[in-house]
Amino acid sequence: MKSTPYLCLFLAGLLVVAHCHQVPDNHEDDHTDTKTQEHPPSVHENPKGKTQACPVACNIADFAFIFYKQVTRDAAEKNVFFSPLSISSALAMVALGAKSSTLTQILEGLTFNLTEIEENEIHEGFHDLLQFLNRPNSEIQLNLGNALFIDQKLKLLQKFSEDIENFYDAEAISSNFQNSAEAEKQINDYIEKKTHGKIANVVKDLDPFTLLALVNYIYFKGSSTCPFFANT
């Protein structure tokens, strides 16, 4: 019997890497066709004239292959389906509240070399990348983001709350984890709303001793020239 093929979703990260290498220099020709100039700004452009999205996308690709190799090692004969961008953006966001060795371990675990890129550039890169992917598009609809549900007995530092909003467009939501049923409903309702009803009741049996829940969601809607189908 043949081994079950591994299935890996390199969502967005690898696509943006390819995009970064394919976008031509905007200064090559001052007589560019008008139709080309009408296209939306590329991932290279922002009001400041620069972006960190491409370097960060390359790190996400490196992380994807490392993570895939590790997961498939422990999942023989199984399909593997994951989003490197979701994992890396969620952990990078949490790193905003970390210091010292914990901060270093998180970022290096995401394949960032802190001697080559500054911490702030990493967060700016994720910000640019998420803005690029979440922008309105007539052909596809993509909604990707993170949220933190925090026990109501805890209080976040104002700077951390501001940073996760500014860099990751995320929000911190107070939750009563002592009432597990109430907290589960709150989180599930949030995810269901963000995924337009496609994902419901994903959180179950929440531990009443929980203090923080990190949520990542993805909603994608688009057509495909090669639709997926099941073999019979």
Rank of each mutant, 00 (worst) to 15 (best):
P40H: 09
Y68P: 00
F112V: 07
L110K: 05
S161Q: 13
K185E: 08
A181I: 14
E139H: 09
L156K: 03
L96P: 03
C54E: 02
K221M: 11
A57S: 15
L9V: 11
K185D: 00
N143G: 08
G13H: 04
I199T: 08
E116T: 12
K153D: 11
P84C: 01
A213S: 13
P47K: 04
T51C: 06
N201M: 01
L110W: 00
S161R: 13
F220G: 07
F81L: 15
S161P: 00
G13W: 04
I218W: 09
Q186I: 08
D128A: 01
L214A: 14
P47M: 01
K194C: 05
N179I: 09
A95Q: 01
I117R: 01
L156A: 15
N134F: 05
L214E: 03
N59Y: 05
P47G: 03
A147V: 03
I150C: 13
E139Y: 15
L206S: 09
K50S: 11
F67L: 08
E171I: 13
L142C: 07
F126K: 06
P84L: 05
L14A: 13
A53V: 03
N188Y: 00
A172I: 14
E171H: 15
H39K: 11
Q158F: 06
F229I: 07
F229Q: 07
G49A: 15
N231L: 10
A98D: 09
V80E: 02
A147G: 11
K99E: 13
A147D: 08
F167R: 00
T115G: 07
L9P: 02
E77N: 14
Q152V: 12
I122E: 04
D29F: 14
E77M: 00
N134G: 07
Q186W: 07
I66Q: 14
A230I: 15
G125V: 08
D151E: 14
E121Q: 03
H39E: 00
N46T: 09
L14G: 06
K35H: 06
T32Y: 08
H39Q: 13
P5A: 11
Q52M: 10
T111L: 09
V16P: 04
L9A: 12
Q52C: 09
H44T: 05
S224M: 13
F167E: 04
L148K: 06
L214K: 08
F228N: 11
Q186G: 00
T72N: 05
L103H: 07
F81D: 06
D169L: 03
A18F: 06
V94G: 04
P136T: 02
L156Y: 06
P41V: 10
D205N: 12
P208R: 05
Q152D: 13
N137K: 07
K2W: 12
S89K: 02
A95L: 10
V17N: 02
Q37H: 11
N166F: 12
N137E: 03
K50D: 09
G197Y: 04
H127N: 03
P24Y: 01
E45Y: 10
N231D: 06
D189F: 00
P5G: 04
D151R: 06
T34I: 15
S100R: 13
I66R: 03
Y6S: 13
N188W: 11
